[in-house]
Write a protein that binds this DNA or RNA. Structure first.
Lengths: 144, 144
DNA sequence: TTGAAATTGAAAATCATTTTCAATTATACT
DNA sequence: AGTATAATTGAAAATGATTTTCAATTTCAA
């Protein structure tokens, strides 16, 4: 976690932004969880221990975490941004349970290379991609 | 297009909803385009010829089009719902140009079957999926 | 034709996110 | 350490897409 904090500080310095206690508190709360937290969830966690950190600052810091390369924004169709770890985590796709909301991360290199091929066939220069499979997890069983 | 209109009417009857001129106008505007229209864009089109159709009704009708199986909601990360044709269109993925917003539809059966395999490996029952590749189209060239 | 139930549109409400702005704070430079 | 200055903060207001409310209107089965 120290490594990530250092990277974050370096990123801030590089773009002439200041290292503040609020920013570090938000970052630490993010680093401590492996869950995909929304801004509000993160705000509640940070705010519990540090009531002086405001909602807006959490939003703003989440943008910085993304730009620093430590976090990636994900949206599972509910119009709520969530942040997942990017540093030290290779790209993966998601299985999203329609009943309980459970999230399973999966990695399939063959799909990645097929995607490259697809893009190339259309003269398209891929930058990033997202793939989500919605359905029912083991516990939630068959639909209906 | 008549076939789709019939299907829509059948769907409404099945769930005891009424066939109104407003609903048919929104449906027809949707059927006439192959573009991925947002609610607002569709509203503007409908409203041009039929000013008596309100914004809210367009929104409500778009939900009905989705439920009837004629349209599918897509969201390319800008938090705006768009509706694409579902009836008579096999599932496909999207290449989204980050500069000009161009949309390219692609179909790759191998990816589809790999997705099935992935889900099965996690005891997950897939219902639907979405895959989007963001990047730069031929015209917009390399990033930056 | 009629009446119950569904539909409509305008306006208000909602919800996530962004912007505004005056007061505060970090940091580079004395 | 002190100070100037540019960045940061948080509360509140603004935004923008979508949803809800509600009284008036319309559909359609009987």
């Amino acid at each position: 976690m120290q490594k990530e904090i250092e990277l974050f500080k370096e990123h801030l310095k590089k773009i002439n932004l200041k290292i503040t206690s609020q920013r570090l508190k938000v970052l630490e709360a993010f680093l401590k969880t492996e869950k995909h937290l929304s801004c509000e969830e993160l705000y509640l966690i940070v705010h519990r221990n540090a009531p002086e950190v405001g909602y807006t600052t959490v939003y703003r810091t989440l943008k910085l975490i993304q730009k620093s390369g430590l976090g990636r924004e994900v949206d599972f169709g509910d119009r709520v941004s969530r942040l997942e770890h990017e540093y030290g985590h290779r790209h993966h796709d998601h299985l999203v349970c329609l009943r309980c909301g459970r999230l399973i991360e999966v990695y399939e290199p063959e799909i990645e290379s097929l995607q490259e091929k697809l893009a190339k066939a259309k003269n398209f220069t891929p930058v990033r991609h997202k793939m989500e499979i919605f359905g029912y997890c083991r516990k939630c069983g068959e639909p209906k």
